[in-house]
Amino acid sequence: MRWINITLGLIFTGVLGFWGTREVISDPVYFLELLLGGITRGSIYALIALGYTMVYGIIQLINFAHGEIYMIGAMTALIVASVMGLWGWNSAVIAILAVVFAIVYSCAYGFTVEKIAYKPLRNAPRLSALISAIGMSLFLQNYVMLAQTPEFLPFKSLIPDFLFWEPYAHIITSVELSIIIVTIIVMILLGILIKFTTIGKAMRATAQDKVMAALLGINVNQVISTTFVVGSATAAIGGVLIACHVGQINFFIGFLAGLKAFIAAVLGGIGSVPGAVLGSLVLGISESFFTGYFWSEYEDVFAFSILVIILIFRPSGILGKHETQKV
């Protein structure tokens, strides 16, 4: 079985490499555009996927409502920005306040959702928690739809076009550049949080063994809440950035984005933070090339196919630990 995998992999990479090199030589700018577009897309997936993977790492739950948290982040930013825009405030102040509000409110929603829908189900069958999560997702979608509007709302970009970036803007716009830079910063901060702070240590301990962590004096409930809050914050940043990039939002944007980000998290090996980032980049870049060179209408099919193919050969994702099952 193993040599078949290796041979297939080599043939696949060879064909892809050959074909790819040909394309790069024939039109390098288009290739670069697609690559950077893919990285941008992957960065957004990564920001959302982090929330999934962290929550999954700690309580083994697919947090279906996570996409909705991201949507609420974008929605809050839109509302805050429009209100302040009408009051005639300075656009830099608006941008900062909108992002701050988006993060704060997303965190609050993430926290509340966990308290309502997941905490009472801590010891219940896992499927029950999943259905509860799906119910929460449906509820939040409809709540935003009813309270606001089912239509698409135009979202005025909070990020201005940088003047110094003018000469390169045809390859990558300043919004896309900001997305990539912000994502890198968030990743570094998150890495520091998880690796070096006390709460990060507590998170890792809880993910490994909840009971043992509790015995050592870690407040497990608090750690879980913190995980939701941190995940929601990154999702909110992703929401605001993508809204700036796409230019319009509605109540339903969270669903597909959440699904894709979840695929990315699974691709990388769910529960692993670097895995989520890697999976997101792989998904984003390959999706971008696929839609750029092949059919754009089969974009989602491609995303799922790549997931199926990778999982068949590596059943626990790219970076996932292969757990040996014990009796």
């Binding site: 189900l121 509860s132 119910g135 449906l138 509820f139 979608q141």
Partner: peptide, 10 residues
Amino acid sequence: FGALQVIVMV
């Protein structure tokens, strides 16, 4: 419907 799913499960 969504609220019901949550409530029944909780």
